[in-house]
């Protein structure tokens, strides 16, 4: 871990301004991802801005009938909130499928959205990685890629975004609220929040340097059945091979987002028109143009089969 300086921010705007003043600064929330990466010298911030003191840890109703979730609400608190459990069960289920009880107690809503990939080569500083060291190459391509992405990948990077929560937020059409260095606020729909790797896999989101997430807004409840199915090699405490988050209405229409397949939670709205025709039809559109590797070609089959099972559950 490189030596770093540390401050506690007094307000969201000041936090953003402080971050802009200090290139190489990072916000720290729960620290469950950032600290691990700092120990491995994958993240080497020179300055940490602790945002835990900012009063961003409440869940409030919005005038539109949704919920505004503060950036610092813990994953545990968000999953347990009665309104979330009732109206956004997909979110509760996705959160509870992630990490462990201890980690969820510390992990925050914003931190979860910004957690970094679990590509094993990203974690080994002796290996080239365009995400960790732009321009150094990608050790994963041609190597061990079982966990990695099958769609939206690039020749520079095939990593996935590992968050379960983000898959639910994408299916629910949540919106991220931020404050920028100049104090201006803006909103970013989940669809635009995470980026595909392209030539710049180190740029992972639409956030500008220093931009602070203040909240995530859930639109009005959708109704329907909320199912989150996370497929993994062991029963708990593992990242998804693939996950399927679905909201299915009684008439068979609905929404589907995937985890474990791309650099962002993967959703293709047009594919959802195929829902009444079943999993194969949806998957064909959802994963059209997929470029799996030999190691992870199974993910395409797995998505279809898992979605089939989810739709059967929704019908039953």
């Amino acid at each position: 871990m490189k030596p770093f300086s540390y401050e506690r921010a007094a307000s969201p705007a000041e936090a953003a301004a402080a971050a802009a003043r200090r290139p190489g600064a990072r916000f720290i929330a729960g620290g469950t991802n950032l600290l691990d990466l700092m120990k491995l010298q994958i993240e080497v911030p020179s300055h940490l801005i602790d945002v835990n003191g900012l009063a961003l840890d409440t869940i409030e109703p919005t005038p539109e009938g949704g919920l505004r979730v503060g950036a610092l609400v813990s994953n545990t608190a968000l999953a347990a909130d009665p309104r979330v459990r009732r109206d956004y069960a997909l979110l509760t289920r996705a959160l509870l499928a992630g990490a462990s009880g201890q980690l969820r107690n510390k992990a925050t809503t914003a931190g979860n959205l910004l957690q970094r990939t679990r590509c094993p080569y990203f974690y080994d500083t002796a290996q080239p990685c365009n995400k960790r060291r732009p321009g150094s190459g990608c050790a994963a391509i041609g190597g061990f890629t079982r966990q990695l992405g099958v769609i939206g990948t690039s020749d520079a990077c095939i990593a996935t975004h590992p968050s379960d929560m983000a898959v639910a937020l994408r299916a629910l059409d949540a919106v991220v609220e931020t404050v920028q260095a100049d104090g201006a606020t803006r909103t970013i729909p989940m669809a635009d929040f995470h980026r595909l790797p392209g030539e710049t896999p180190h740029i992972e989101t639409a956030l500008q340097p220093g931009e602070l997430i203040t909240a995530v807004v859930l639109p009005r409840p959708l109704g329907g059945r909320h199912i989150y199915r996370k497929v993994r090699d062991r029963a708990s405490y593992a990242f998804a091979l693939v996950s399927v988050g679905a909201v299915v209405q009684p008439d068979g229409t609905g929404r589907v987002a995937l985890g474990g397949v791309a650099h962002k939670p993967w959703r293709v709205e047009e594919a959802e028109t195929e829902l009444p025709r079943g999993a194969r039809a949806v998957t064909e559109r959802l994963l059209a143009g997929a470029r799996p590797t030999r190691d992870n070609a199974f993910k395409v089959t797995l998505v279809e089969r898992t979605l089939g099972s989810v739709l059967a559950e929704a019908r039953g």
Partner: peptide
């Protein structure tokens, strides 16, 4: 069901060299 050091046969090493990548059973298993 899960234990397995993944060999990168080009670079010559076990890739999943931590407890996040090298899975062993947890209680739920």
């Amino acid at each position: 069901l899960m234990e397995h050091l993944a060999v990168d046969t080009r670079r010559g090493f076990f890739v999943n060299h931590d407890l996040a990548g090298y899975e062993v059973p947890v209680h739920a298993d």
